[in-house]
Computed example of a mutant assay.
Amino acid sequence: MNSNSEIKSLLQKFVLNQCTPEEVNEVVAYYKKNQLTDDFPTVEDIQNLLGEMPKMDKQTADDIFMNILSASKEEETIIELPERRSNFRKYISIAASVVVLLGIGFFYKQHVSNKVVEQKFDFKSSDIVLQLENGETQILSEHNSAQIKDSKGNIVGNQSGDKIAYESSLDPEKLVYNTIKIPYGKKFRLQLSDGTMVHLNAGTTLKYPVKFIAGENRQVFLDGEAFFDVAKDKKHPFIVNADELNVRVLGTHFNVSNYPEDAATDVVLVEGSVGMYQSNEEFDALKNTILKPGFKGSFNKENAKISTKAVITDIYTSWIDGGLTFRNMTFKNIITKLERRYNVTIVNKNEKLANEKFNASFKDESIDKVMSYFNDIHGINYTIKNDQILIK
């Protein structure tokens, strides 16, 4: 690396975690040799590169900060500043910035295989995306058949149309997760390795093990809505994590709705029994809420309280067959759900309408018929052009 442009390019790759092991060694060697010379990148250069770092969760950021502190203390014991340089403060800043860069880079290298940085998913795209444990992604078409492979090329499941069935014969030493992301306007099905069937609604993300392991709970992580037909296994409870709520079952049929716009996470039990409790707590059958068939449990996201009431379960599971139901729902939230269901964009210029609440149920209807209903019953004036709906 003889030119300034080469080290800048390599430093950028380092910050973005794109260096090979050999290139990482080059960066470290260059820093040790040239940390106080004029051709080292400026503080502004480094700050610009830092701005391109992927976002991390709080725990990762805390770990990195502690790592940097320990690295900085080690650096302080060996750096000697030239007294004759009048701009030595500049070089302190550069050295400190590079210590931060190296600290982040090394931490990222050490943890990238264990922790995948989640990329923001565009639910309004038309692609069903399957993400592997190492971050690699596969685009799925609900009209095709294909083999599902892991990062090493091993077959772990088979796709047939809108369903993936995972192999039950695999024998992994540790849990390996896949994450599937369902865009607006589509639905999908999964058969997990234990035989559990999962129906995934539009705008849903589910993280789940490729193969469950004996002796450990069968746990999956849900953002969105899914209907679970859980295979019975008394020795291995099945747990759905929906952010701050855990839903624990042994074998049953139930629906979980956990969309971000909703004030509550709803669990509707069709058959069997489920326990509801906060995700930071241990399950206690005597203290936690136990649902009976025909009941809905609602976890209030604001105060973490759980309430239950008897419901007609078909209303909450009709989406599997194309149905659509709104119960005491603001029109603002209805818009979000219509956008998700039909993959359209709705612009509402009637501000008074946003917070009004409605009750409505539809079978497998088109967006035109749904909007026509609101116009006929509630006098909502609208126009539809392509995938754009304007409410006046």
Rank of each mutant, 00 (worst) to 15 (best):
A29I: 02
N48A: 05
Q35I: 11
M56W: 01
V24L: 10
D38M: 05
D38K: 15
E23Y: 10
T37Y: 09
T37A: 12
P54E: 14
P21M: 11
V28H: 02
E22G: 04
Q47T: 12
Y31E: 03
M53R: 15
K33Y: 06
M53A: 13
M56A: 13
P41R: 09
E23L: 04
M53E: 13
K32H: 08
V27Q: 01
D45Q: 02
M56Y: 06
V27A: 07
L36A: 07
I46E: 01
L50Y: 09
V28Y: 13
Y31C: 03
M53Y: 02
D39P: 08
N25W: 04
E23M: 03
T37I: 14
E23N: 11
L50K: 11
T20A: 08
E22A: 11
A29W: 03
D38W: 12
D45W: 07
G51Q: 12
E22L: 11
K55N: 11
E23R: 00
E52V: 06
Y30K: 09
P54D: 15
V24D: 03
V43A: 03
P21V: 12
C19E: 08
E44I: 13
L50V: 08
L49G: 09
E23I: 14
C19Y: 06
A29C: 07
Q35R: 15
P41A: 05
E44L: 10
N25I: 05
P21R: 07
I46D: 00
M53Q: 15
Q47V: 13
P21N: 02
K33H: 07
N25P: 00
K32P: 01
G51W: 02
E26M: 02
Q35H: 13
Q35V: 02
E23D: 13
V27E: 04
N34T: 01
T42N: 03
E44Y: 12
E52A: 15
E26R: 10
E22I: 06
N34W: 10
E22H: 04
Y30S: 12
E52R: 14
D45Y: 09
M53W: 04
P54N: 03
Y30Q: 05
C19M: 07
N48T: 11
A29Q: 10
D45A: 01
K32M: 10
G51L: 01
M56L: 13
T20Q: 09
L36H: 09
F40Y: 12
L36V: 08
Q35E: 02
N34R: 10
